[in-house]
Design a binder for these strands. Structure first.
Lengths: 204, 204, 204, 204
DNA sequence: AATGAATGAGAGTTCATTCAT
DNA sequence: TATGAATGAACTCTCATTCAT
């Protein structure tokens, strides 16, 4: 039993890993189930044994990736011993997200998808809530720098601004790496972080 | 002859107008030619009499819209009598772009498309060059605030950052208008503009 | 009026000439009205002003060409003063038909078309009858070598055999001119003619 | 695996069988994939699982049928014990081909197709070479009557003439069975065979 | 669990034909 | 008479999904 479950889980993970690449490369609509299965080393059948539809996989990918990113953030936080360090860790977190081009493209893809499938937004929102709940339950919230915990509204807005710039810049970078390098993206994100959360200057 | 040309041009414009809405609403892949034609008040045949493929229409839309936006910018610039005013006009231009949700979504769509169709990037780059050349020849360049004309690289980078934030924020706004309102987008863009070009503070 | 009619007639002839080439080149199904019109120096409209459908043009072409060929044969016959010469002229007629590749391909096309459109066979048969009647009325029949006039059945069969070999060989020649040259086709047809109508040897 | 392959092969054969009928009935251009699939008892999808395009199927059919006919010829030859018998068998082969109307129409269709798709002629020629090579390797060549083996050029030409008459006559027969019956076609082919290979009289 | 043959809805595209000019 | 914009039916081909194995 356990062996079976393990195998199933392994297949699922391989499919998710493949899906991440194909969805980022081709976009939701153009991505073909067959390509995803093939990239994972399977055929279509394996896909349908583990996911019910393309959409289902897309959501599963969103949930898995979001969770992973939040867990990584929690890990960074937990390794800190004071607020100063935590703020620094948060800054590092954003700056290093720039190293993962695929994820930013996928986030854009997810949001565009949500935008265009109003009926699924409930499902999506629920997925998000689930992720957040899970995270909160596991205590990530209290680990965040105190300063970010109080004025809820403002904090959320700042996070959105940072997120928007991150994804926007990553797209520009992916679109034309010569116009803006990965290092520049990281540097600019760091500056914006400082401006938003530490009131330092953005871009020299 | 002229009558025919006029009619053709009118049809083309109606199709482009419809395409803008459908492409923004559904994305390039999910957009159906039939929907575009229908929205313009025609059938598919009319579409194929004016454009050769969906891609062709997509490019034509990009070119038309880009040109329109640049013309609008030029208009704003020409109405200015000194540098101070021009900088202000430029700021206004960016801030008000936020009023046009569709265009930002389309820009994301265009860039994602380019990203995913390496072979067409040459075609796209050429289209951009054509637009820019046209604009420059008509003297937009010299109208820009002097300060933006010198350090070419840096200027381009700043524009990209602004563009990235604009599109990123617009997506967030479209995705969840309660999380970030249109006014907030405009305000934030203004702040970033000041920070980038006037060294003022970003976000209070 | 007469001027108008002349012009109309000229247009029709140009279209028929173009149709002959396009139908032979592409076949009935693949032939495009637009290509025919363009080859004649017109646009689709001119076509529809002169013919009602593609089929209509196809039949008109068949009738025109058949008539022309029969008229040519009649001309050859009329230039003869005795039976001996007429037989010779008939032989020449068949042998030289091999010079016109297009017509043989078209004949195959016509027959295949008739084969596949049982409902139109009546129409086609009628067209044929019309042509023959016209020819007979104009006295071609009595010009044929006497020997070919008597045993009606046998004569018709021989003509069909000759026709079949002509078209079959022309197709082989068009298909692979190196396997069988135009001259060879002509020579072989001559031999068969002699065998059928003069009892000479076929192929050395 | 084997089960799957068997099933696939069976489907392919059923599709080829159906294709033969539909292509002969409607011609390449007018033939609809859907009709072929339906006649084979499938839907379009099954077709595309086994052949990539209509053209692909057309070529596969050509290859299969050509091979079958050559194998039949080889069988006839192998059953002979002396040259006399072989010549007789060859004669029988040609004469009986007339019993298969569809195949002659298809051959015309194939040649017309090749004629009109110059770019595919290489592919077609290759298919033919493949078939011939296969046959030769299996020793058909040496089984042919000795008299047909020497003057290569002349032999090939005679075969082409026979082929041309066969296909031409079959078309005439299909076009108007009253004008020339199947028996007459067979008889005439036999006569031509004798004339070409045995120097007997053609047609009484 | 995984395969892959088969389905079938649906898309892009072509083109004979119509119609206002 | 001839143009060419527009129609709409029909076709090829793709692909998410189902199902027997």
């Amino acid at each position: 039993m356990n062996k079976h479950q393990q195998k199933t889980e392994a297949t699922k993970q391989r499919l998710l890993r493949a899906a991440r690449q194909i969805f980022a490369r081709d976009g939701f609509d153009a991505a073909r189930i067959e390509d995803i299965a093939a990239k994972a080393g399977f055929t279509r059948g394996a896909f349908y044994a583990n996911f019910s539809t393309k959409e289902d996989l897309f959501f599963a990918l969103l949930e898995q990736q979001s969770t992973q990113h939040m867990e990584r953030l929690r890990g960074l936080m937990e390794a800190c011993s004071n607020e100063q360090e935590r703020l620094e860790a948060l800054r590092t977190y954003y700056a290093t997200r720039a190293a993962d081009k695929q994820w930013s493209i996928l986030v854009l893809e997810f949001k565009l998808f949500a935008l265009r499938h109003a009926k699924l937004r409930a499902k999506l929102a629920e997925a998000h809530r689930r992720i957040r709940t899970k995270m909160k339950l596991e205590g990530i919230q209290c680990l965040l720098p105190a300063q970010l915990q109080r004025p809820q509204k403002s904090k959320e807005l700042r996070k959105i601004v940072l997120e928007a710039l991150l994804n926007g810049l990553m797209l520009e970078h992916a679109y034309d790496p010569k116009a803006i390098t990965g290092d520049q993206v990281t540097a600019i994100l760091g500056k914006l972080f400082d401006t938003l959360f530490r009131r330092l200057d953005l871009i020299p």
